[in-house]
Write a protein that binds this DNA or RNA. Sequence first.
DNA 1: CTGGTCATGTAACCCGTTACATGATTTC
DNA 2: GAAATCATGTAACGGGTTACATGACCAG
Lengths: 188, 188
Amino acid sequence: MALRHALLAALLDGEYSGYQLAKAFDAGVANFWHALPQQLYLELSKLEKEGLVAGRRVVQEGRPAKRLFTVTGAGLAELERFALAPAKPSFIRDDLLVKVQAVDAVTAGAVIEQLRERARVAEAKIIVFGKLLRRMRGDRDEETFLRAGERIGPYLTCLRGRQFERETRAWCTRAVAVLRAREAASRQ
Amino acid sequence: MALRHALLAALLDGEYSGYQLAKAFDAGVANFWHALPQQLYLELSKLEKEGLVAGRRVVQEGRPAKRLFTVTGAGLAELERFALAPAKPSFIRDDLLVKVQAVDAVTAGAVIEQLRERARVAEAKIIVFGKLLRRMRGDRDEETFLRAGERIGPYLTCLRGRQFERETRAWCTRAVAVLRAREAASRQ
DNA sequence: CTGGTCATGTAACCCGTTACATGATTTC
DNA sequence: GAAATCATGTAACGGGTTACATGACCAG
């Protein structure tokens, strides 16, 4: 029941269509939640029925019509209630970690390749998050922006996202180095 | 379909009962996966039926009997297949991040308190992971252990877990500082 | 003319969570 | 005497993933 709150939180930044939200919630920029497009369209419909968001149909030329959503007063109240409720602890669930946990009992080569790939993905995300942060803070430095900026929520979550990806990259490269060294040693 | 692989990976370390696994997969030490006891008991039964793990009933005095599980040859083969398959990217799903994303539109006080609580939890996990790491490497230093240790998978995932919790703690305290400063400024 | 982007959905299935159930032993 | 620990499950529900479906426009 938290996807709806993630959607409401995302819509605080302005009007967005399901498609735009889907891009943000899919792999790419999802720095605070992840969901697939199908889920979003369904949840947006529900939210609209319940009056937590309001949809506005916008006809475009040369493109399909889209529906732009905004948070209503009731939506804001729902967010407030959510913020006050105790947060459930967040858990890790990662295929790659499971594979590393089992790396002593399986072919290390395959795991190494996937660690490399994950490091590449992390690298790309670090760059995207960096650009996002710069765009959000504009010409101000970070200190100033965090002290006086009007909307810092997305900035803080984006900082966390970047930090997470940096560590992911660091850990992956370290693990690759360790595993390769052991492979080389065992071959002799 | 990845919980089964997480279970198989956990059982590589030796024989464990559902109860012991539940403790590890619940909040506490779950450094590479998380699951509730009910899920584990169910999945262990399935794995046993499929011949991927073997259960052994152990009667105890003064305590209920327990079932200890070990990975079978077929279980190892299944792990190997899993390791070779492409890993799906891991995604963040965290209530607290959603609340921070929305912090400009809701009462900041409640979010601050939850950030503090999360920092405390992270602190506790950092200590637990530290102890685990020391126990795993014994009297060897980290370099030596990672070069020559017989089982390094759990060590690597534990390192990742500790790193993650350290950053969680750092980010939470930073966010609290920023939000408190803004609260103080707006009160004037 | 193939593939990518824009744009929105429905339906089936399965995994994960919540709730419920039991019972003995040890610790405070 | 209450609460925590040891020990293992069943059942219902709901959210998330996978698969399926449609259709117009634009770039190479």
